[in-house]
Amino acid sequence: MTSIKALVLTAIVGACSVFAFLYSGLYPMGADNKHFAVTYWALETLRERSIARAIRDIQVPSLNDPQQLLTGGQDYNAMCSGCHLQPNKINSDLSLGLYPQPPNLSLEPTKGLYGDANARAARHFWYIKHGIKASGMPAWGLTHTDERIWAMVAFIQKLPMLTPEQYQILTAPEEGAADEPMAGM
């Protein structure tokens, strides 16, 4: 009985401490203030386990159509390159300022990281479609079709092999296209 009382008392004190910490404002929220290594590990593990579970049923389509590279290239340049960079660009205001730092997708991925090319494609599709909470990565799936997102994935697969000149040609806006896309047209 005494041990149960002690357990309940500890739980109440613990809960009160958590609330006191939350309301105290003591937690440093700035993106320029890094997490403790243990906090980073916990958040990263939570993220990676969640995504690994979510992508299990994703079927990767063929990603070798040149038209996908043209569509995906333009979207990548407009929506992703600011954070995830491009050939011959090692950083940007966004890549330096965001925390956690977004990966540089113009570099060859670490061998074996997240499995083979197919597994990485499924993972990129999920990242782009759903975004990642509190990381700065938006859920583009709310405004872009799956087909368009797969085109971006196709482009990202080729990105580490591209020279700056190839990148420029593939991502440049189509000639004759309107400068700004017109909403609702």
Partner: peptide, 13 residues
């Protein structure tokens, strides 16, 4: 596919 895409874009241009 990269070469094909570049070729198609430049040919159009």
């Amino acid at each position: 596919p990269v070469m094909q895409a570049m070729h198609s874009k430049c040919a159009k241009q």
